[in-house]
Design a protein around this nucleic acid. Structure first.
Lengths: 246, 246
DNA sequence: CGAATAGTGTCTCTCAGACAATATTGC
DNA sequence: GCAATATTGTCTGAGAGACACTATTCG
């Protein structure tokens, strides 16, 4: 901590924090994964007012002494069972329209999380049920608060991040094949990629993939066994993986 | 607005908002420009506690019924005289470490603003002076709160955005030459670019530049007059302008 | 062997980077 | 003409997309 000058210490002692308009601050999570080739988001069914019965992103109020990132990770682990070290967590942004919550003035800090496919998470407090929904099938009008807008921002950010970062690897297990990684790109971008060019591209990009020696077991369709990789150290893909089309 | 069910309306009437931990919410602005070839940020000298006398990013408290974006734009126009329509404004993110403000728990929503070079802005309330500082010369330790971290995030985002968006044009006047645009890239990225390749690249990227017919006046060093352009309609540069080196 | 999947090689086109050459101005 | 800046052209190498071909497994 910085040294606090004596005059400031004196001023602080007489300071009344109530002179500032009070807000509540929440964290909401856009938790994304790829399940059986389908780009999916975790949604909960609300069991309390407001928006009782509606679907919403998981989240909740930030505690008085809690860091924003810590609040997001705490709820991630507690409400969904996803451990932070197997997922990628980043802040998506703040959403704070004055009427976004009918109870009071709330600013929500949204977090974007990429997780590998996990067993079904358990419902937390104040929720009836929790489950994965295909991103393409989420009907915006059925989401509580402004969560349709938050989800759209998260999905677009995820699609962009696959282009210039190695974060697609956050959607698969620690050891994975090139085909599994390609499945992530195809699910998130919603279009097929050429397996041969994809293979050449990802294995040729420095720092993206590290071979782990051992081959993968053969899949249900037979065929030559694939090599296994883990994620490399690169933080950025240079050059980027370009989305086909647009 | 959505229709509110009768049972929820009843519940809301008996709801006590004080059960949630109170936060203050502020907006802080990372206002960047390029002045005489120098990448610069607007800083104010604080005239009130805390951090009295220290430099900080301009900003202030969000009002109870004010949208976050509106709060940022209001302060931009009021405290710096920059009109929103000549600048690019986007949210940078939320900063909310529990001890970032000694007065109380504050979450700051930071905004990133790109503006053309403007006459010196006027100091607002609670500030002694206001002025542009070269980004390279800002000493992190002299900034109030966590503003060094906020500034670093804004600068890095700005450098990245020049790569894949046409936002460099937000740093120059409505009509500009290719050389002026190149000056923006060189100042923000801190390294020289080949004028000939740069010219070919920007004039060849669809939607980046629109010629406005009229030539620019000849500069102080003489030479062939440059053509004038205005910014085109493209939202993204495809393919991107790659930063040399790294 | 045939089917299926994994992985390599080849060709073409686009584009970035280096830099020569030309165009247009003021003096 | 000379200096200075703007703009176009040319060459080369990296890399993306299309797709033929080889490799390895199962049944």
């Amino acid at each position: 901590m910085r040294p606090v000058p004596a005059d400031e210490r004196e001023w602080l002692a007489s300071y009344d924090p109530r002179q500032f308009p009070p807000f509540a601050v929440t964290v909401d999570m856009v938790l994304l994964t790829v399940r059986d080739g389908v780009f999916s988001v975790l949604l909960v069914e609300r069991d309390t007012y407001p928006y009782r019965g509606a679907l919403s992103l998981p989240g909740g109020f930030v505690q008085p002494d809690e860091d924003l990132d810590a609040a997001a990770v705490r709820r991630l682990e507690r409400e969904t069972g996803v451990r932070r070290d197997v997922a990628h967590v980043e802040q998506l942004g703040a959403f704070g329209a004055p009427d976004r919550d009918p109870r009071m003035r709330v600013v929500s800090v949204a977090y974007l999380i990429f997780a590998p496919d996990l067993e079904a998470p358990q419902p937390g407090e104040n929720t009836r049920s929790v489950g994965w929904k295909a991103v393409e099938e989420v009907v915006a009008a059925t989401l509580a608060f402004d969560h349709a807008q938050v989800l759209a921002a998260g999905v677009e950010r995820a699609r962009a991040k696959l282009e210039y970062t190695p974060l697609a690897a956050a959607f698969v297990s620690e050891h994975f094949t090139v085909a599994e990684l390609r499945g992530v790109y195809e699910a998130v971008w919603g279009r097929p990629l050429d397996p041969r060019n994809f293979h050449r591209k990802v294995t040729g990009t420095p720092g993206f993939l590290v071979p782990v020696g051992r081959p993968a077991p053969v899949g249900p369709e037979g065929g030559r066994p694939a090599a296994l990789y883990r994620r490399g150290e690169a933080a950025w893909l240079r050059p980027a993986m370009l989305r086909p089309g647009s």
